[in-house]
Amino acid sequence: MNLLEARGITKRFGARTVLDGVDLLVRERETVVIIGASGSGKTTLLRCLNRLETPDAGSTRIADVTLGQRSDGRAADERELARQRTLFGFVFQRFNLFPHLTALRNVALGPRRVLGVTPREAERRAAVELTRLGLADHLHKRPSQLSGGQQQRVAIARALAMDPRVMLFDEPTSALDPELVQEVLDAMRQLASEGMTMVVVTHEMRFARHAADRVLFMADGRIVEEGPPAGLFSAPRDARLQRFLRHLEPAS
């Protein structure tokens, strides 16, 4: 049974088709890693899933909700769509933390202002999530006082505090100094092992190899090859994937 079913996701920017009828099915507790060259449409796909971007065609069903649709089949209004978006957690490449708020407030803001829980309860939840991510000593620091790796973990906690069904990660470590990458990947692996359903765009092939149940390779707005990491990495069929992996080899 799929927890997430995106079908025929199509997105054009002007005359350019950036996503060309992408299907993405993800089972509960599965970790799917998406790889592909820069510009192949990975970010746009994630953004179409949680509707930060409105796809031109295609549908996304998560749990039993069809995004942009109410349960009676009519179009969802903005408030309803915003609520549906919380079924996804989203982790941005550049963290996008709220710079004026402490780590605790960053994480508590969603529960407080979207779920409407009391300030005390929101902060309690935030503290729990931050502690889970090893940030108990940094609750009252602003993002500018934290390292990149810590900031990204705060961002993960912020997403988790909304209790999402599926976590989307858009190159969560590519803005980090190399020595800070591992702490974020470790946090993600822990999350996966706890049963979170995750879709991860990344260039970290070691992570893909060890944490992914399935790897998808995107090129020119389509998923052109997919499979378990062992097979996909050792015996790539698509020529573009072969080239992509060859270019990565020295780096990883």
């Binding site: 919380t86 709220f98 202002r113 979207v114 912020r158 997403a159 505090a161």
Partner: peptide, 21 residues
């Protein structure tokens, strides 16, 4: 722009993002 997107990613409407973020 990333700020309003982050706000929307945790379920805020555009108006919510304006006021709270």
């Amino acid at each position: 722009k990333g700020q309003s997107e982050a706000a929307m990613s945790i379920g805020m409407t555009r108006h919510g993002a304006l006021i709270w973020v």
